[in-house]
Simulated scan of single mutants.
Amino acid sequence: MAAHNRNPSTPATSSSSEPDTRPKSSKDSSDGDAGIGGLSVLDLLRVLGGILLLSCGMSYLSTSGQSLTWGYNPWWTRTREWKALIKGQVYLTDEQLRAYDGTDPRKPIYLALNGTIYDVSASPQTYGPGGSYHFFAGRDAARAFLTGCFQEDQTPDLRGVEMMYMPVDAPVDSKAPDSQPQSYDPVEGKPTDTPDVEAHKKARSQDKRRKPLTKGEIKNRHAQELRQARKKVREGLEHWHKLFRGDKDKPYFKVGEVKREPGWLDKVPRRKLCEHAEQSRPKREE
């Protein structure tokens, strides 16, 4: 009877303490690396990286090596800038800079602007020998870039150049005629053809009634005009810096700095404004 009551042996079930030695499915093994549509994140990065490299390569070829970003032109996207950084900065004195004026075909064409040296070799027809702006090559002519006196102001000395933006008083005879009793129209601001003594006297009396500025008001006006003039000098220089940095799609780039000893300006005589700059000064209306 004991033999009949014995239960048949059943297969032993795995207890919770026994490790699961079954191999994981491929789906389970990729759960931590799953992406969109069955692609892993790594696969997506590879695809995007390939597209980016292809775009940069096509841009490089289509722009003759000038841009990797289809015209988006900050300095860090320009290959010529990176090449210059790899080569290192160039430091030249004003005398050494003269050797890079394009007369030696083995050397690049450099020009400097307020102490910064730029490579303009991409435009030998402009800055090379015989070019329309060859006189800028191999030198720092920052003053001429502002005044427009290309022959007289081939110097980096900017002292006093802000005066070209300082207004000058209008001639007295344009406000109220003193010498001739001819008709003067204060609205039009000019004399008429018909003599008019009464109108002449009225214009003079109106000019005399105008309250003159005090010394303090004149001083404050001068200080304000001087600040504005110096601001225009900085803006004028920055306009040219942007051009030679390549920010305006020109194939130029910065290569270094001009070496000058401290106090070099003290050894240079101060310059007056050239005739063109003096004549272009604004006229004060009041």
Results as ranks from 00 to 15, higher is better:
6 R>C: 05
6 R>H: 09
7 N>C: 04
8 P>M: 10
13 T>H: 10
19 P>H: 04
19 P>V: 04
20 D>C: 05
25 S>V: 03
25 S>I: 00
28 D>I: 11
29 S>N: 15
34 A>T: 13
35 G>M: 11
38 G>N: 15
39 L>W: 03
41 V>Y: 04
43 D>K: 07
46 R>E: 08
53 L>N: 08
53 L>V: 12
59 S>H: 00
65 G>I: 06
67 S>W: 01
67 S>D: 08
68 L>V: 13
69 T>H: 06
77 T>P: 01
83 K>Y: 03
83 K>Q: 14
84 A>P: 14
86 I>P: 00
89 Q>E: 07
93 T>Q: 11
94 D>N: 14
94 D>Y: 05
95 E>F: 12
102 G>L: 03
109 I>Q: 07
109 I>D: 03
116 T>L: 07
117 I>R: 00
119 D>G: 11
121 S>N: 02
122 A>W: 09
122 A>L: 06
131 G>L: 05
132 S>P: 06
134 H>R: 01
135 F>S: 14
137 A>K: 07
139 R>H: 02
139 R>I: 11
139 R>K: 15
140 D>G: 08
140 D>K: 04
146 L>F: 05
146 L>S: 02
148 G>W: 06
148 G>N: 11
153 D>V: 13
157 D>I: 09
158 L>K: 00
159 R>Y: 09
162 E>Y: 11
165 Y>C: 05
170 A>V: 08
170 A>N: 09
172 V>I: 15
181 P>C: 12
185 D>R: 10
186 P>K: 12
188 E>F: 12
190 K>H: 11
194 T>D: 15
203 A>Q: 06
205 S>I: 05
205 S>R: 05
206 Q>N: 13
209 R>A: 12
210 R>S: 15
216 G>Q: 10
217 E>C: 10
218 I>E: 15
219 K>V: 04
221 R>H: 15
224 Q>C: 07
229 A>M: 13
238 E>R: 02
238 E>K: 04
239 H>G: 00
241 H>R: 01
244 F>K: 05
245 R>M: 04
257 E>R: 02
259 K>E: 05
259 K>D: 01
259 K>P: 03
262 P>F: 09
265 L>Y: 01
270 R>E: 06
272 K>H: 00
274 C>D: 04
277 A>H: 01
277 A>M: 06
279 Q>I: 10
279 Q>R: 14
281 R>N: 03
281 R>S: 04
283 K>W: 15
283 K>F: 14
284 R>I: 09
285 E>N: 14
286 E>I: 07
286 E>P: 15
286 E>M: 15
